[in-house]
Amino acid sequence: MKKVFYSFLTISLCFIIACDNDSEISQVASDTTKRVKSGKEAIDKKTIKEFVDRIPSPMIISSIIKDSGIDYDQTLLNSVDNESKYVIEFKQALNLGVFSTDLGYANIYEKSQDAINLLVGVKDMADNLKIGQYFEFEKIKQLSKSKDKLDELLQLTEENLININNKLYEQDRSDLTVLIITGGWVEVMYLATQVVQKKPNKDLEQMIADQKIVLDQIVQLLDYYASQSKMRDLHDELVDLQKSFEKIKFTQSEGESKQVEKEGTVVVEQGGSEQAEMSKETLNEITTKVAAIRNKIIS
């Protein structure tokens, strides 16, 4: 009887530990914070999900592009006709990120036909990677056709991509998640740099400069997989891009935050400010390097 009891106890404990996966996040976040304080973070397998989760959506930059009054430019997007070139998982994952960013860009501008075409690219890449079942293709397609469902469309698309990343993490395929994120980020940087070259915009330039921190995170993620030759090559290209970002000068000033309560919301205006000083040469250098990395990804 004792054997039965202890077997049951073991199973129960295993179950509790398995279900308590998220509790690690708290610990991991706390550990990571310690490393933040001590300088450059070292990444291990446990912290990959946390790093991945913190990378901001490319949608923010796409949204700034639109809000800046810059016209939609279809020629900047990757063509779904290129799909047949992506026969290995490395390329499929990178271009899943590329197509997802392009889809977000088309959605923001409410270009439903382009969005539907890009959706096919996203779906095909996801299917090739055997994660297509987590993408609600038909539902997203229907929402893309409706002019007044933009909020729902953005929500569902983002949720689907988060879901895919979570599934890959569960399947121990986080290297693909890192590639999806990298592809998505490179693509939105490509859109932003191309747009800003055609029509200079201070807000967008500041946002490009601010991407230094995101690039640092992505480089650390790729660094973890640097034993894989293709990942290492991509890592090295982004390290080279980092060198251009190092030329940007950031100045910060301190200031008091203001907090008020307004209509059931705590409203805070964070004190202080931050300004990025980026020369035209540096912007050109970043534009050229991003375009080269992006063209290699989509070719």
């Binding site: 998220d22 996040i25 976040a29 706390s30 946390e50 989760d53 601010d210 400010s273």
Partner: peptide
């Protein structure tokens, strides 16, 4: 946010927030 019926006291996530946003 699943606090596992109270066994988890805190859940922490991190995110990159951007200036002027």
């Amino acid at each position: 946010l699943d606090f596992m019926n109270g066994s988890k006291k805190q859940i922490i996530y991190s995110y990159v927030f951007s200036n002027n946003t």
